[in-house]
């Protein structure tokens, strides 16, 4: 059945090992993968979007409680973490750049540096979380609003602020916890020489994901840490 064998498309012109059978060419395959990643990131925007919406509504309804709650967040740690994450975005961009040039060792080094910076971010985040637990600022029955200088009716929405704080930063941190092993895996593949200037799509897609996580934090930082700091 020669015609069936034909349809397998395994003829001589199309033998690049990274080209899967249903694509015409490597660039077409890469275009599709990149576009698919972007569509995925759009779904992520909408996923976080629900929380950003809740934040917008409650911040307008309970502005004072949000200001008082926000001031209890550690501005220094938040700012340092923002810088750390921006650094990790730079190292990730350099990692993708190195892989596009086929520089194997540089790729691995930049990716590992990205993982290190991501871990620093998560470490600082853990310190901040612990502080909130110590001060009973975790939503629930034992929530205490005294330290926020809120009383009576006004103290209740502070729980909503902290609920959103934990939900938004927690979801963001979850994305980083998922991202770090992926980067490690990609670094291992790079170390094994799986990528080339013609084929390094996995590195690029991982980069897109990591930059997206960075963008979420770029919005979380001013929204959560910088409300009413000037009073």
């Amino acid at each position: 059945m020669s015609s069936v064998a034909d349809a397998h498309g395994r003829d001589a012109d199309r033998h690049h090992p990274d080209l899967v059978h249903h694509f015409e060419s490597l660039p077409a395959q890469k275009e599709a993968a990149t576009f698919g990643m972007w569509v995925f990131l759009v779904t992520e925007v909408m996923f976080f979007g629900g929380l950003f919406l809740a934040y917008t509504i409650y911040r307008n309804l309970y502005f004072h409680a949000f200001v008082q709650s926000s001031r209890h967040l550690n501005l220094t740690l938040g700012a340092v973490n923002t810088a750390v994450l921006i650094c990790s975005s730079l190292t990730m961009a350099m990692g993708v750049h190195s892989s596009a040039l086929g520089r194997r060792r540089a790729t691995v080094a930049w990716l590992l540096l990205t993982v290190a910076l991501g871990s620093v971010f998560l470490g600082i985040k853990a310190v901040e979380y612990k502080d909130k637990f110590d001060h009973h600022l975790v939503p629930g029955e034992r929530f205490q609003a005294e330290e926020l200088h809120l009383e009576g009716e006004e103290s209740r929405p502070a729980q909503i602020f902290y609920a959103l704080y934990f939900a938004m930063t927690g979801l963001h941190a979850t994305h980083m916890v998922i991202g770090i092993p992926i980067i490690l895996f990609i670094a291992w593949m790079a170390h094994r020489g799986r990528f080339s200037p013609e084929y390094h799509t996995p590195v690029e897609l991982t980069g897109l994901y990591w930059h997206f996580v960075d963008i979420i934090w770029i919005f979380l930082f001013p929204l959560l840490y910088l409300i009413g700091r000037h009073h």
Binding site: E31, F35, V42, M46, G207, H211, D214
Partner: peptide, 22 residues
Amino acid sequence: FMHVKYSSRLVALAVGGGILWL
């Protein structure tokens, strides 16, 4: 960093669409 400046219009459309929907 994410190369949208250098990417196809389709990618730019996806980005714009996502923002618009949010």
